[in-house]
Design a protein around this nucleic acid. Structure first.
Lengths: 345, 345
DNA sequence: CTGTTAGCGCCTTCAA
DNA sequence: TTGAAGGCGCTAACAG
């Protein structure tokens, strides 16, 4: 345990050069005599010198940080997003500052404020509503902002995402197309999630267009909305609306819960009743019956976000890439019709 | 977009005090005249001043960072660990530097080296083997190190985890106890994961003690080891060893894959064959039949890690907590006997 | 309670 | 190709 950390000066002294030469030797693209550089690197090795990046970024005015704010790592799509961004950024020597908003705009505001102290070079948010203060802090900071996973009505700046409203419409339309007409909706209380509200609005709009009632909905008020929520909501739905012929869940894990709940009620899916989820998580693919759902591939979304990020940070490999002041990049969700809904006849 | 960032000096000038007074006013526990503080905070608000933490930590010699290195966020237990640590640390104003090793010691070494430049105040690792250089870098850095999720033979320093070997033994013993005798093992190739190797060793040791052959094993060589791997390995096992009466999977998602594969082969679980997993993930609880497994609650592990961390950082609420040079905190995995194995008669 | 002085460890800028 | 001077924005330590 070093009593005092090894500094660049120590390396310089030991190598018989100035600090500046050490600094240059440590950077890839800088002119230093080959022999001198080798000597310096040897000394670095020997002394176990590790540069202090806080000091470096203070004078270079580049933090090497990118902030990523997501609601929760419990959602595998967000976890994947973080993982990909983290890996891609580490390739260019940058690091992610990760924060969890817990789906709360107030918590997000705190995080924005505290992360801004680290002078990140960009801020990526998963949008579920932002406070005025968050917006103003971000604006004042002058750094690029990218909102992920949604398509907000009033984007802060750049966006890489899709419309939950439209995705829910697409899925609902195909349920009608399969002949379902008494479709129930299960989700989080709308106040808890704009995302969920958008999904319900999409669902509702299609039913209304078709002249069908859209009043079969059951909400769960508390977080998280998971497998257990699906079980609980399913029971409520079937009590309140026993003649339901299909259940649309605002998320796949909940839909999986619905599948097991129905099975325990002795109902067969899809023969007695249909089930659809949202998100296209792994579980939707592998459960039995496999789950009809709609969703965006998180890998693809994260990679698009990464490309945009590189462009706004001017570290794109693509030299002649242009950048609009506000890029809205649409990611198209794909519909998966699987075993939990009946075949089209 | 500010052409030049607002500094503490700007605030000091506008408030008619020195920088030091501003610095003090911004800290909770420091003596500043109440009126002066209010005036300063008003100016801060007005100017939209955001302190630069890189500068602050350069002079205070406290980075406010803790490094957390995990293999992958795809494993929900690791994601949970990260989330809890992140939240707990944010309460005390610290931030997590997150890195993914991808289960590679070399990648881990790179991350250790690059994260050390940020002068983290502690380093948490999920141990799956470390290079000599990683160990030496960590030692030289002088910061506390906590290894998570395993119980390594040669700990670097502190440990919060459990023995995969022993957990696998416990589970295997109870399978024997249920009357199974032709048990197959499915896992990752041992070279890919010391964790997996430990599980296999535990499995093997119990069978050998019981005088049973332990040669029914099928490995998958490539990452990730997930639901699809379980499906694939299950097919191989049943081809090679058709009289197998129970399959022990090195992870729950794979065991879930085995369940669906067996179902498609027309075999009934647990009537025709038993299945056990490892990890006690959500899916083990909710799949049908629910899965016999063994595992540690990630919330509990993360909280213990957090407590230890607070103690080694001397920010524990508990004043008279003592700290050994090397704390080995054991987390006991709990065995869950569920529907995927037969009842004891 | 407040201010002054002197760096923290590195990089920018310029000159040699 | 290298070095010297100066400063990034903040806080520790001490003095008043």
């Amino acid at each position: 345990m070093a009593i005092r950390q090894v500094t660049m000066q120590d390396v310089a002294d030991a190598a018989g050069v100035s600090r500046m030469t050490v600094s240059r030797a440590l950077r890839e693209n800088s002119v230093v005599n080959a022999k001198t550089r080798k000597r310096i690197l040897d000394v670095v090795q020997e002394l176990g010198y590790v540069p202090d990046q806080a000091a470096g970024s203070l004078s270079s005015r580049k933090s090497g940080f990118v902030s990523v704010l997501i609601p929760s790592l419990d959602n595998p799509h967000f976890a994947r997003t973080v993982q990909i961004l983290n890996e891609e950024l580490s390739v260019v020597g940058m690091q992610v500052l990760l924060g969890h908003t817990g789906y709360s705009a107030e918590k997000e505001e705190e995080l924005v404020e505290s992360f801004l102290r680290r002078r990140p070079e960009a801020m990526l948010l998963s949008c579920d509503g932002h406070t005025e203060k968050s917006r103003s802090l971000l604006e004042k900071s002058g750094i690029p902002v990218i909102e992920l996973w949604e398509r907000p009505h009033e984007p802060i700046q750049h966006v890489v995402g899709f419309s939950n409203f439209e995705a829910a419409q697409t899925l609902t339309r195909s349920l009608l197309d399969l002949g379902y007409s008494k479709i129930a909706f299960i989700g989080e209380t709308r106040a808890l999630s704009s995302r969920n509200a958008e999904r319900f609005r999409g669902f509702q709009s299609v039913l209304e267009q078709a002249g069908l009632p859209s009043d079969r909905h059951v909400y769960q008020g508390a977080r998280p909305f998971n497998i257990a929520s699906g079980v609980a909501c399913c029971k409520k739905v079937m009590e309140e609306f026993p003649d339901t012929d299909c259940i649309f869940c605002a998320s796949d894990p909940a839909a999986f819960g619905v599948l097991t709940a129905l099975q325990e009620m002795g109902l067969s899916v899809p023969d007695d009743i249909g089930v659809a989820g949202f998100g296209d998580f792994d579980i939707a693919h592998y459960c039995r019956p496999s789950l009809t759902t709609i969703g965006v591939d998180p890998n693809s979304l994260a990679r698009k976000a990464n490309e945009l990020l590189k462009r706004v940070l001017n570290i794109s490999a693509d030299e002649d890439s242009t950048l609009d002041a506000r890029e809205i990049i649409e990611v198209v969700p794909s519909l998966k019709l699987r075993g939990s809904t009946r075949q089209k006849d």
